[in-house]
Structure formats: C-alpha cells, structure tokens
Design a binder for these strands. Structure first.
Lengths: 186, 186
DNA sequence: ACCTGAACACCGTTCAAGT
DNA sequence: ACCTGAACACCGTTCAAGT
C-alpha cells in the first residue's frame, strides 16, 4: 500500500547545510539530519546513498549559492557599464570573502569534500571572465588561478585563525588585492 | 610493581603521521595507531588526552618539519650570498610546494586542525623575513600574507583536484609566482 | 607504573517487518 | 511505496583488574 513521502532530498540537503553551519562537519550525522527533517536515520537511505553522498550534495548546494552571488555581481557591473576589469575582480573578491565569512563551515568544506566538476566550473566562471578582460584570453586561466588561489588561501587562513599574530586583517586583504592587480596589469 | 614502558609519545606521533599519509584522516583511529606501536587502544590515553590531542600533535610535527625545510633553504641562500629577495621567495615557494606534494594529507591537515601558535609562527618566519627584504619592514607582514595565502590556496586546489579543468599546473604555479613578485616589486 | 579486557555511548548502515 | 525497530560493525573513551 503506497505511503505519502514524509521528506525530500531538498529538505535533507537544506537540513544538512543548517547543521553543518551550526555544529560543524562532525555534527553532521545521519541521525541529526533525520531528526531535523522528521524521520528516522534509516529512511534517509531512500534518498542519499550514504553520508559521503549527503556531504557532496551539501557542498554542491553551497557552491551553487556562491556561483549565483558571483554571477549577480558580474551582471550588475556589466549592466552598469564603465567598470574596469580590475574593478570587477575587486568586487568579486569582496563577494567571495563575504560568502566565506557568512558560511564558514560550508566554505571550508568546498575544498575538503570533492565537489562535482560542473559545480566548480560554474563557480570559476566569473573570475575567469574578469581575468580574461584584464590580461587577455591567453593568460586568463593562469591569472584566474592566481586570483582564486590567493582568495582561497587568505580566507582559509582567516577562518582557521592563522592570522592570530596580529595586524589588521581587512587591511591585509586590501593590500593583497591591490598588489595582485598590480602584478597582473599589462 | 613498576612495568617498563612499551611505547612513547614520539612513537605514537610518528605512527600517526604514517597512518595519516597512507589512510587519510578517517583512517587515523586510536586502534590503528595502537596496533602500529604494539599496544591496545586504551593504553594510548596514558600519553595523549584524546584523539583530538593526537591530531594536534601530528600537525605540530608536520609543521615543525616544514619549518626546518624552509629554514634550511633560507640558510643556504644566505650563506651563498648574492641572492635577491625575490630569488629567496621563489626558492621558498618551490620548497613549500614540494613539501605539500610529498605529504599531502599532513599539509591539508595544517589548515584544518588548529595548530599551536608557536608552530605557525616559526613556519611563517622565513617567508616573513624574505618579504621584509623585498618590500621593507613596514609592509612585510601584509606581503608575507599575500605570498603565503597564494601558495596555500594554490596547493589546496592542486591537492584537491580543483585544477581538473586542464592547463599546465607547473606553468600556472610559475605564472602566479612571477606576477606576484611583480606586484610586490618596489 | 603501565597495560588490558570489558563495558558503554554513539554512529553508519542493512534489512526484515510494519502500514 | 515508504518508514521503522532491531541488529551489526566500528570507533572513542573509561575503568576496574591484572602484572
């Protein structure tokens, strides 16, 4: 006899994201997720293969959100017109940092759990296109990797508390961005 | 009646590092470490508070090794003389990358598990001093953070397979280093 | 003094049985 | 068709009992 579904994959992923941010990766247990969506842990296996697959789903959702934010900035600045490629890169960097500080656990997980290639590709698009505008198509990939690697490493360090030695973090971010763009200028 | 010790903290940490590199963090269990040093899991609690403390000990040992390598490069180039600050930074970056590729799990853990401040401070020394020589004392900390963040992010991405989209990774590293130094040049 | 078996709590996962 | 209790394997951790 058919029974109505009591939850959904989307609800499970959403619950996973909430729990991840509040309790960290170790708190992201099948039982915690099940309790939040109102079923027992074994029922989750109807929708996700195992805990690893759930984590990948969560990471994918996080990356999609980040992509949407970056694409939004890209669109705004394009429609406004008159923005230099450097200005676009600066805006993307600020957005990237804002996202990391707003979703620290999800951001860290992006580089721990292996996300689907398509997600990463989409997220890399805006910086990649702004880099092409700044340095030309030939060096675009290398330049985008330079910018992305710096942002990623900086935020990893900021979130991990590696900047405990002092100094102004906002200023360090600004210094890094300025000198990075200077190194890329043609 | 006193009994001779059958293991030591040093042996436990060393076993932890081996297991970490071969089986990853999830394989680093108390039982696996105990088996490797020849005791039962409960005996480990005589020397380490819990699994988290063991992980911190492993990370500290990894950072100390990295620090020693970086200091070795610093010493060599100083005694050789005639090396520009940029040359020293390039050599340190190559050493940093070599270490990450040789000990990928340990390297990743450096930014996941929170290491003691003193360890991080020591590891940051060589890049910090080379940066001071390159850009002057006032901007040294910001410049060192720019270089370190880029290296860290780049390697995090390389190890995590975020470069699956193609392109030559060695060339991307070289491109990044060159343009970074260009951005820092006075 | 150090080591161990036994025990407990907790988690991931499977599966037969319920509706 | 979906959900659940029961069960199993595995892990971290504690502790009384061994030597």
């Amino acid at each position: 006899m058919p029974t109505p579904e009591r939850t959904s994959t989307a609800a499970i992923i959403a619950a996973g994201r909430d729990i991840l941010e509040s309790d960290g990766l170790s708190g992201l247990t099948m039982q915690a997720v099940a309790a939040r969506v109102g079923v027992r842990a074994p029922s989750l296996y109807k929708r996700v293969r195992d805990r690893d697959a759930l984590i990948v789903g969560v990471v994918e959702a996080v990356i999609d959100d980040l992509s949407a934010e970056l694409e939004g900035v890209e669109r705004e600045l394009a429609s406004g017109g008159g923005d230099s490629a450097e200005g676009v890169l600066a805006a993307l960097a600020a957005t990237y940092r804002g996202f990391a500080l707003a979703h620290p656990e999800g951001f860290r997980l992006m580089f721990t759990a292996s996300a689907p290639l398509a997600s990463l590709d989409r997220a890399a698009g805006p910086v990649r296109r702004a880099s092409a505008a700044a340095v030309g198509e030939e060096d675009a990939l290398d330049a985008a990797r330079l910018v992305t690697a710096w942002m990623t490493g900086f935020l990893q360090m900021e979130l991990g508390g590696a900047f405990r030695l002092g100094g102004d973090i906002d200023q360090a971010f600004d210094y890094g961005l300025r000198h990075l763009l200077r190194g890329l200028a043609r």
